[in-house]
């Protein structure tokens, strides 16, 4: 736990993702990689910290007696993860994943078009559509893009994240 001390997590989250743009862009250009795939890390990196924070909170919310019971039973290794740690942390993971997924849609607007000097990489996607529309000052396309993205987020929340969250709360709640 000491390694994952919350302040360190916050410190890592404050790391500006822009700093790794040159590395990612030059690797994609030099390696002739597909920007549709390799720009994704930029999108995901900035938001996965939500998951980390929530998992840290979940791990510290495990009641001491639950830990002791595990020790008393000699539950160790994979069995400990499978029966105690992962179920206990699962609802917190889902909470973090919901936040991260929303944030990642947001981040797609800035990361699907990556520029570094003369190099400009574009991925095919809603994020780059919005990005191009705003660059061109095309108000209508911008609105269409933003509305579609908002719809995506809402529909995904309703159809995927809510059921997952409800199940996590129902089955894995520590009371």
């Amino acid at each position: 736990m000491t390694f994952f001390a919350p302040f360190r997590g916050i410190f890592l989250a404050a790391f500006p993702v822009n700093l790794i743009y040159p590395i990612v862009v030059s690797s994609i250009v030099l390696g002739r990689l597909n920007p549709d795939i390799w720009l994704s890390p930029l999108m995901i990196l900035g938001t996965q910290w939500y998951i980390l924070f929530n998992v840290i909170v979940g791990a510290s919310a495990i009641p001491p007696d639950m830990r002791y019971a595990g020790e008393n039973f000699h539950v160790r290794g994979w069995l400990w993860w499978k029966r105690i740690a992962l179920p206990a942390v699962f609802p917190f993971y889902v909470t973090g994943a919901i936040t991260a997924s929303g944030g990642s849609w947001n981040a797609s607007v800035v990361s699907e078009v990556a520029e570094w000097g003369q190099q400009r990489l574009t991925a095919t996607g809603l994020g780059s559509y919005i990005s191009h529309a705003t660059d061109a000052g095309d108000f209508r396309r911008t609105v269409v893009g933003v509305v579609v993205m908002a719809l995506f987020v809402v529909v995904l929340n309703r159809l995927f994240w809510r059921p997952v969250f409800a199940r996590a709360e129902r089955k894995f709640r520590m009371t």
Binding site: P63, D65, M66, Y68, A69, N72, F73, H74, V75, R76, L79, R83, I84, P87, K171, F172, R173, M174, T175
Partner: peptide, 27 residues
């Protein structure tokens, strides 16, 4: 030495059988 705790009796995500089995599973 088995200990039963005051504030915590069961892992809520396991069935009674799974809760009881856990100690044997660990062995």
């Amino acid at each position: 030495i088995a200990m039963v705790f005051q504030s915590f009796a069961l892992f809520p995500w396991l069935t009674v059988l799974e809760n009881v089995k856990l100690g044997l599973e660990a062995l």
